[in-house]
Each structure stands twice: as structure tokens, then as C-alpha cells.
């Protein structure tokens, strides 16, 4: 989120700000908090991809009134089904959330507020409890892998690495760089056995599902530009050095053979 564009969108009806800490790279929270406080708006962090990410040593999910994490199988800290966690420092919200997730039941027979059926299964909690102690080392391994990829890929002119601010801890749920001739590179990598991907090729504002919001192409030019340039490479903790080197070599080969 380009935090400098937020204030002009605030109206009388604005009730909250939901920054998305996309790819494990947090939104500029120190600046966003200033705007939120000035306008008396709560922040709900979508930290689904950013568990253990931080800015100035304050973790994702700790900046807003609530923070949301996903435990989907593809996430850094995952269970073996859909799943999620909300964190908050507000006791009242904590109490209400516990009611809301279980039909609003304050005990077996009394419904305090109308709620949802949004409980995490015990089996999945067991998986989560097993993987949670490894969370730190998982994110550290991903950071090491990303640093390695950065160091090699940054030497290729056609590849642009996103900024890596020193006071941010980037946890690389997705390792994304900007690439020239992205589509050709993507196909080439896939041909060479690398499962590269695009997260995501169609920007949200152009999806059919939001057509009622009447956005048109070009409304978000930076998003559009990114859609054409982003490519995601494997970066997870199970990769060995040889595989990482193979990714870098393949990308290099692609651009060299193009000339």
C-alpha cells in the first residue's frame, strides 16, 4: 500500500484501514499509524503472508487493533487445511472473538451474540502446535535463501530487486522480483523445471467480482505495471543451495541466450 495515497481516500464513511502485508513484506506501518491516529481510524492488519515479519522490531499483527494470519497449507507456518489466527492486544475484542467463532455461545446453551462457525479443528491445532516452535528457524531459512537469490539475481540487468529496507524483517512468504520479458522468462523457467508463478496476474480491481465498483483499467497504474513484471521464484526452507543456484543460472541463461 502506498501510504502517501491513503489520506486522500478517507471520507466520512471510512471506518477502518486494512493494509495487506503482501509477500511477507510489511506495509509502512509507522507512517500508516500516524494517518490512522490523526483520523481516528482502527487498523486491521492482513498479515496472512507475514508471520514474524517486522518493522523496527515490532512484529506484523502487532500494529493494528487486530492482526490476521492465515495457516493455509501454502503459508510459512501452515496447518493441513484452511485455518487462521487473529491477534489483538484488546481484551474486549479477544472475548468477543472467542464468542463469535463459536456461534456466539457463552456456554453450551446461551447465545450472547449471533456468531459464526469459524473454529479451528483440534487436529489442525495439533499440527500448528507442532510447527510453531519451528517458526523462527523456518523464516530464517527463507531469509537466507532470499538473500542468496538477491545477491545473484541483482547482477542480472533485466531483473530488478524490490527495495530491502534495513529496519524491515522480510519473511518471504513469496520471493518476488521484477523481470523484463516476464512471460517469456516464466515459460522458460517452467520448461527448465522451476515452478515459478505470478502472484497475482489479474489485479483485484479488474476482477469480474468487483465490476460493481466501476473501476477501469489504468486506475492503479503501479499495480498494473507490477502485474506485467512480477515473477515469484521458489524460496522455501526445503530448497538446497544447488536448487537456488539452478534458479539463478536458469534466469541468467534466459537473458543471455535472448541476445
Amino acid at each position: 500500500m502506498n501510504v502517501s495515497l491513503v489520506e486522500e481516500k478517507i471520507s466520512k464513511r471510512t471506518k477502518a484501514i486494512v493494509p495487506v502485508h503482501f509477500t511477507g513484506y510489511m506495509t509502512n506501518m509507522p507512517e500508516l499509524i500516524k494517518i490512522a491516529e490523526k483520523n481516528n481510524l482502527p487498523i486491521i492488519e492482513d498479515a496472512c503472508q507475514s508471520i514474524l515479519g517486522s518493522i523496527n522490531n515490532i512484529n506484523a499483527g502487532n500494529w493494528g487493533i487486530t492482526g490476521a494470519f492465515s495457516l493455509h497449507p501454502l503459508k510459512n507456518i501452515n496447518v493441513w487445511s484452511d485455518g487462521g489466527i487473529i491477534v489483538t492486544n484488546d481484551k474486549k475484542i479477544d472475548t468477543e472473538l472467542r464468542l463469535l467463532r463459536n456461534h456466539g455461545l457463552i456456554n453450551r446453551d446461551s447465545v450472547e451474540i449471533l456468531g459464526y462457525n469459524s473454529r479451528l479443528d483440534t487436529i489442525q491445532a495439533i499440527v500448528g502446535n507442532w510447527i510453531l516452535p519451528k517458526a523462527k528457524s523456518i523464516s530464517e531459512e527463507r531469509i537466507l535463501n532470499a538473500n542468496f537469490l538477491d545477491s545473484k539475481l541483482s547482477k542480472i540487468k533485466a531483473i530488478k530487486i524490490p527495495p530491502r529496507p534495513k529496519n524491515y524483517r522480510l519473511v518471504y512468504h513469496l520471493y518476488i522480483v521484477f523481470a523484463e520479458q516476464r512471460d517469456e522468462l516464466l515459460n522458460y523457467c517452467i520448461d527448465q523445471g522451476i515452478e515459478a508463478k505470478i502472484h497475482y496476474p489479474i489485479p483485484m480491481y479488474l476482477q469480474k467480482g468487483v465490476s460493481f465498483l466501476n473501476h477501469k483499467k489504468g486506475d492503479y497504474p503501479v499495480t498494473d505495471k507490477h502485474c506485467n513484471e512480477i515473477i515469484t521464484f521458489p524460496c522455501d526452507q526445503h530448497l538446497d543451495k544447488e536448487q537456488l543456484e539452478y534458479i539463478c543460472k536458469t534466469v541468467k541463461n534466459f537473458y543471455e541466450s535472448e541476445i
Partner: peptide, 22 residues
């Protein structure tokens, strides 16, 4: 999530899928 395929959202949806394990 209202996904028509991996990349296209046709309607705003929910995440209400049954797990494969269940």
C-alpha cells in the same frame, strides 16, 4: 473465494471449503 480459476474472481465469495482430510 469466488474464484472461477486460479486467477479470476467472478463473485465475492467465502472460504468455506471442506478439508480433504475430513
Amino acid at each position: 473465494h469466488g474464484l472461477e480459476n486460479r486467477d479470476t474472481v467472478k463473485k465475492f465469495g467465502y472460504v468455506s471449503r471442506m478439508d480433504n482430510l475430513q
